[in-house]
């Protein structure tokens, strides 16, 4: 047990913690924007998977990181557009729409991978690029903090900056006000001239871009290649983080950190003689537990307010 504690209170663990939060935080921020606009985007998982593959293919065949980034982002936006069209124009239920996107994504990624590489498991045979790691000058020289904060993947810093950017968007920009108003009361927003559908389109596309970055991080940072079903529920965990963080950037950041902690724990706990399946369960159990704890506290608060 003490080995585990020692491991958790080490700079390596905190470094890894920040590493594993990236692919949860980015889609969670996207999901938060969608939630704020009144759209629950269950398709995060599928968007991540598709952009993870698109990034690898783009960088392998486009001959560079930028091509990969463009392909990944383009794919994420395109899929989001499909989701938005079916949900907003054709009035399909968001949950079913999202599930459909996820089903499509897990089929299409394997089909495409197989067509291009002849393999169904990984893209190992392709020479794809990864985002580089960034050493922050000055910070990297600070003893403990430098080891934790510096030397991360570029996308990790993008994720952390995105927290600030989403905060700025939601609370300091007219677009953010429109997004929030559309989610809170679409009829009221519509009555003062906000185009509800267009605002939701924008929210879904913004969400798609952030989610796409999260997906690309999986195959171009977290790992150096695409493997089938590599997102492994992170899109859903992100959705839980967005809900638990009440769709505020800080709340989303904190709940993402919480879920990532258990993800990181499961890496560390491999040292124990526990059956590995129980360790594999941990991130998912933690998400259920976290969401439940949050809901209990919310229910209590509501009751208290009712009593007053």
């Amino acid at each position: 047990m003490s080995i585990i504690l020692q491991n958790i209170f080490s700079t390596e663990f905190v470094y890894m913690w920040i590493r594993v939060v990236t692919p949860i935080l980015l889609p969670a921020l996207g999901g938060a924007i969608c939630n704020r606009a009144g759209v629950v985007n269950l398709g995060l998982e599928g968007i991540m998977l598709l952009s993870a593959l698109a990034g690898v293919l783009g960088s392998a065949f486009g001959g560079g990181l930028l091509a990969g980034l463009a392909a990944g982002l383009g794919t994420a936006l395109l899929v989001s557009l499909v989701f938005a069209y079916f949900h907003l124009n054709l009035k399909a239920d968001a949950t079913i729409c999202g599930t459909a996107i996820n089903t499509l994504a897990s089929g299409f990624t394997v089909l495409l991978l197989f067509t291009i590489t002849g393999e169904k498991g990984t893209s190992a045979s392709l020479k794809s690029f990864s985002f580089s790691t960034v050493n922050i000058p000055l910070v990297e020289d600070i003893p403990v903090i430098g080891k934790i904060l510096s030397g991360h993947n570029l996308m990790t810093y993008v994720a952390l900056l995105a927290v600030v950017a989403v905060w700025f968007l939601l609370y300091k920009m007219p677009l953010g006000l429109r997004i929030r108003s559309v989610g809170e009361n679409p009829n009221a927003a519509s009555s003062v001239g906000v185009n509800v559908r267009r605002t939701r389109y924008i929210a879904i596309l913004l969400c798609g871009a952030l989610t796409g970055l999260g997906g690309m991080y999986m195959s171009m940072g977290y790992l150096g290649m695409f493997t089938r079903e590599m997102v492994a529920g992170r899109g859903f965990i992100a959705l839980a983080a967005a809900a638990m963080g009440q769709s505020t950037p800080i709340g989303v950041f904190l709940s993402s950190m919480l879920f990532a902690f258990f993800d990181g724990m499961s890496n560390t706990l491999q040292l124990l003689a526990l059956p590995s399946q129980f360790i594999d369960m941990l991130p998912y159990l933690a998400t259920i537990g976290g969401l439940t704890a949050y809901s209990i506290q919310r229910a209590r608060k509501a009751k208290r307010r009712l009593a007053e």
């Binding site: 399909a92 079913i96 499509l104």
Partner: peptide, 8 residues
């Protein structure tokens, strides 16, 4: 799934 769910 996408098409059938499309109420419109």
């Amino acid at each position: 799934m996408l098409l059938i769910a499309s109420g419109a």
